[in-house]
Nucleic acid binder design. Structure first.
Lengths: 194, 194
DNA sequence: GGCAGTTGGTTAACAGCATTAGCTTCATGG
DNA sequence: CCATGAAGCTAATGCTGTTAACCAACTGCC
């Protein structure tokens, strides 16, 4: 690695890659410095310590995830959109378990915080899908939280390697999406009657 | 603190309490020793290091959770059982965020492992509920995994303090349970037609 | 009742990690 | 052409988990 100058973005990106490769638990300043061909203290010129690094990795992950799911639901509605979202979400988490794990523990403060905003964009994609199902405003927040629990739970279990989903995991995933789809569809039908 | 002898169970229980109070991140050998009125190295006579302690706390949490939800669904079926399970689950996680967090990252190996078995008991309670809805064997595993993702996601978000569920969180939780209940009920109705 | 072995506690020392302080080098801009 | 500041370095500090070596007390056996 030639001695090209380092930027905070480089450090965060390398940290994210390291977390994906060795696991979030083993994301350490020393290992990261080594990967960047630099001594450990040099990292502090770009990042404000390990906690800051973790937070930035979490923000990167949420941002990337938001872009992935937004692209996946582009121009779709109903079960196409839901399925696209779900597949993009699962693909991201599977490809980047370390990054996603960073988001699990990270505490979000409020609007203006980069991580909060990135999370809000993911939630906005969920809301867009739900609007496509005709979920009305009064129930939107509840439905959104339900989807959030479902996907976050899936991701957390996946990232932890925590499932031994013996048998076909994809089949279960599809069933899950189908279940939600049927549920949302019939909720919409009930609302139309009112 | 008088010099009553310590057992591994004492250490694990105190570790679980500590994790609940100060957060799982700050569950440390030094702090735990201090709480038990003992020097740090003494803990190694009862527990095989920090990783082992974490694993045992996770196992304790899963075991307690399993007992709580089993008691909650006793003699109930259908939406009563689902609601009872959900309330017991949420109550446990809210009361013991540190303990539950321990279970999120812990890796489960396979049958015979205490943590695996404790998790299996929780899953068995889910299966019992689903049988009450008439879910048939072929779909059981899929439905079980769906519930698992949903509840685990809820718990992970709750334990991380990660939601700012502005507005009424309980209302959203009830909506989620209602949604699942209606979904399972109509799946059963469709199956009856076949 | 005395004695050996085990068990649970101690202090001391070590190792790995994040972090800080202080120095050096080098590119840049006036 | 020098002053400035950014980005790297070495050295040192402190905290935490962990191990080694030692000591005291309880247990069980003759």
């Amino acid at each position: 690695m030639p001695r090209g100058r380092l930027t905070p973005a480089d450090v965060v990106r390398a940290g994210a890659e390291l977390a994906d490769e060795v696991g979030y638990q083993d994301l350490a300043m020393g290992a990261l410095a080594q990967r960047l061909g630099v001594r450990t203290p040099s990292l502090y010129k770009h990042v404000d310590g390990l906690d800051d690094l973790r937070r930035r990795v979490a923000t990167l992950a949420m941002t990337e995830l938001g872009e992935a799911v937004r692209a996946a639901i582009q121009g779709k509605a109903g079960s196409d959109a839901l399925g696209g979202f779900a597949r993009a979400f699962a693909a991201y988490v599977t490809a980047h378990p370390g990054r996603y794990t960073a988001t699990i523990g990270a505490e979000v403060t409020g609007p203006g915080d980069e991580l909060y905003d990135a999370s809000a964009r993911v939630l906005e994609s969920m809301a867009a899908i739900l609007r496509g199902y005709g979920v009305e405003d009064g129930e939107m927040v509840h439905a959104q939280r339900t989807l959030r629990c479902l996907f976050h739970g899936f991701a957390a279990l996946q990232a932890a390697g925590g499932f031994q989903w013996s048998g076909d995991a994809d089949e279960s995933f599809d069933w899950m999406i189908g279940f939600i789809d049927r549920g949302l569809t019939s909720e919409a039908a009930v609302q139309d009657l009112r």
